[in-house]
């Protein structure tokens, strides 16, 4: 029994099990924890495929930073833990499950077919292993990121700044005085002057 196949099997079961558990967990905190489990399993999948740096980033940024932010907001809002079972559209849940099953079958079919199609282009796995051993995974990534992908890289910095400013505007609490000033009501000291 090949070790890689065993690790893949464990990863497959954990990732799929955690995703399914997310669907049926009623508590938002449990959903977040199962998502962390699925992300850990995916990090293992990245390691198996020679994407070492991406696997580290997956755990540090996704399972670390982003999920902590999620849990922080859940705790901050004290989310009502019970899931609402009222359906504004009758049968919406059943239809969603059915269509989801159709989508799953379609994607699995495309996955199997697509793997066969793309496999015709030579042995990519060996080339990537060589790349990981030659300049190293991080160096190869940096070379691609700061040469061919420099423009998208700069654009993402703009995206981050816009997101940051947007959140600050959203989260700002307007004081009563400021609200009056915006509505055109003159403040008391302005009248005196």
């Amino acid at each position: 029994m090949n070790l890689e196949v065993v690790i893949f099997g464990v990863m497959f079961v954990v990732a799929l099990g955690c995703s399914l558990a997310m669907l049926f967990a009623p508590n938002a905190v449990h959903v977040a924890l199962f998502l962390v489990g699925a992300q850990m399993a995916l990090a293992l999948a990245f390691l198996l495929q020679g994407a070492f740096f991406v696997a580290a980033i997956q755990i540090i940024v996704y399972a670390g930073a982003i999920m902590v932010l999620f849990l922080f907001v859940i705790m901050l809002l004290g989310i009502d833990l019970r899931e609402s079972l009222i359906e504004p559209l009758t049968g919406q849940r059943g239809v969603a499950l059915g269509l989801g099953a159709v989508l799953a079958v379609g994607l699995v079919f495309v996955g199997v077919q697509g793997a066969d199609l793309a496999a015709g282009g030579g042995d990519g796995a060996a080339a990537l292993t060589e790349l990981n051993q030659g300049p190293g995974n991080v160096k190869a990534l940096a070379r691609a990121l700061f040469s061919r992908y420099l423009l998208p890289f700069e654009v993402t910095s703009i995206l981050l700044v816009v997101a940051m400013v947007g959140v600050m505007v959203l989260a700002r609490r307007i004081s009563a005085v400021e609200n009056d000033r915006r509505a055109g009501v003159p403040a008391a000291e302005e009248e005196a002057a």
């Binding site: 995703s19 399914l20 997310m22 199997v112």
Partner: peptide
Amino acid sequence: PGFYLVLAGLMFAIGVVGVLV
């Protein structure tokens, strides 16, 4: 690679169903 693609497809479908449900 096909096995990874199958796993990704299943997880994506679960995500879609979760958003809808």
